[in-house]
């Protein structure tokens, strides 16, 4: 499978995520689009790790080449889980104060 297919696919998903962040005003949907972008990057990292593995099949220690990419994906998932817990807490606090999830209520920090 050529690597370009995976690059194009993850770019399409990433740009859908960007379009979601730019066009929606619901804070939770914006947050979900950020998760979408993170997943597009994860997919690309795994594809590149397999590409790296395929390119170094004749190297002497090729058995572990490319596993750093997959470990990085694991760490991205861990950070995303932590980020979601804090971010949703912020959204709940904002909803408690303004009774809305509209992102335009957050355009100023005072009041």
């Amino acid at each position: 499978m050529p690597i370009q297919y995976y690059i194009i696919l993850s770019m399409v998903i990433f740009c859908i995520g960007i379009a979601g962040v730019l066009t929606r005003r619901n804070t939770i949907i914006i947050f979900m689009c950020i998760e979408l972008m993170l997943n597009a990057v994860n997919l690309l990292l795994v594809a590149f790790s397999k590409m790296h593995y395929a390119a170094s099949l004749n190297a002497p220690n090729h058995a572990t080449v490319g596993s750093e990419g997959q470990l990085f994906v694991f760490f991205i998932m861990v950070v995303a889980a932590a980020e979601v817990s804090v971010g949703l807490a912020i959204i709940v606090m904002m909803f408690r104060n303004t009774h809305s999830v509209d992102a335009n209520f957050l355009n100023r920090l005072k009041n």
Partner: peptide
């Protein structure tokens, strides 16, 4: 990346 491919099935990384 123009001529790179990736191995789908084998490889146990």
């Amino acid at each position: 990346v123009s001529h790179k491919t990736l191995i789908m099935k084998d490889g146990n990384i």
